[in-house]
């Protein structure tokens, strides 16, 4: 039995078919990077994993159980923006999940328990390299530091799946490289199962163990919404020939009919 089992997944909004016939299996410890042209449904797919969208047909099984249809602590998420709480300091942000777990009514800890939670949080903060900014608020941090904080905040909860929605899309290239190192380190140390959406195909090849490409393999110019996207490539990253790389790269640039329509 696989860790995560995606069975005949469809998503449609009225007449518009976004995703069709997604079947796949993911093992514990896999790092799946997802690329695809904008509007191809990769974010919809991530939202179904997260639980904010429900599949029209089919299901996703986690350890044999259908995943919950609302976000919960099984799945961690880091968005491109707004992932951290602006009214809490770095330490408070990372301590939050423990406080929520141990104090259902007040959502806050005091005394000894609070100290313990703070100790654990500090270790996680150290791991992402934010120890110097414990008592700063997110607006005092750079974009890269905010994403480090968001990662620490999610990881301390030990999610079974970690979802990353273009987490480095808004960062400068230099900082992005640092973040790649950090994600790889965390992935190895915590044996995480990660799904990561990215616009940057190089990032997709560099990170992760598998690369998924979302694309429509059938296209009707008269009815652009008639067919949904599928996973057209599922590649073990590392051994890939140049030809396939170029093919994927091409499939990500806007297709011909759209250009004709625009002009």
């Amino acid at each position: 039995m696989s860790y995560l089992n995606i069975q005949n997944l469809w998503k449609e909004y009225g007449d518009q078919i976004v995703l069709e016939q997604i079947n796949n299996k993911v093992e514990k410890g896999d790092f799946v990077t997802i690329v695809g042209a904008s509007g191809c449904g990769k974010t919809t797919f991530l939202k179904m994993l997260l639980g904010t969208e429900t599949p029209s047909r089919g299901q996703i099984l986690l350890d044999g159980q259908p995943i919950a249809s609302e976000p919960n602590e099984e799945r961690g998420i880091v968005f491109q923006r707004y992932s951290v709480f602006p009214h809490m300091t770095v330490l408070e942000n990372v301590m939050l999940s423990r406080e929520l777990e141990s104090s259902p009514i007040l959502g806050r800890l005091f005394g000894k328990q609070k100290k313990q939670a703070a100790e654990d949080a500090k270790q996680m903060i150290e791991l992402v390299g934010l120890s110097h900014a414990l008592n700063k608020y997110p607006h005092e941090l750079s974009g890269g530091m905010q994403q480090r904080l968001a990662l620490a905040q999610s990881l301390i909860k030990k999610p079974r799946i970690l979802l990353l929605d273009e987490p480095f899309g808004a960062l400068d290239p230099g900082i992005r490289t640092d973040m790649h190192q950090l994600v790889l380190k965390l992935w190895k140390e915590h044996q995480l199962t990660i799904f990561m959406i990215t616009h940057d195909i190089k990032e997709g090849f560099f990170l992760g163990t598998r690369l998924w490409v979302f694309d429509k393999d059938r296209f009707d110019p008269q009815a652009p919404n008639a067919y949904g996207a599928k996973i057209t490539y599922d590649l073990p990253v590392g051994d890939i020939d140049k030809e396939t790389y170029q093919q994927i790269d091409q499939s990500l640039t806007p297709s011909e009919p759209e250009i004709a329509e625009a002009s």
């Binding site: 799945r75 968005f79 992932s83 999940s97 929520l100």
Partner: peptide, 10 residues
């Protein structure tokens, strides 16, 4: 995003 994030933190 914040509301979803809070839910993923339990």
């Amino acid at each position: 995003e914040q509301i979803i994030k809070a839910q993923t933190l339990g």
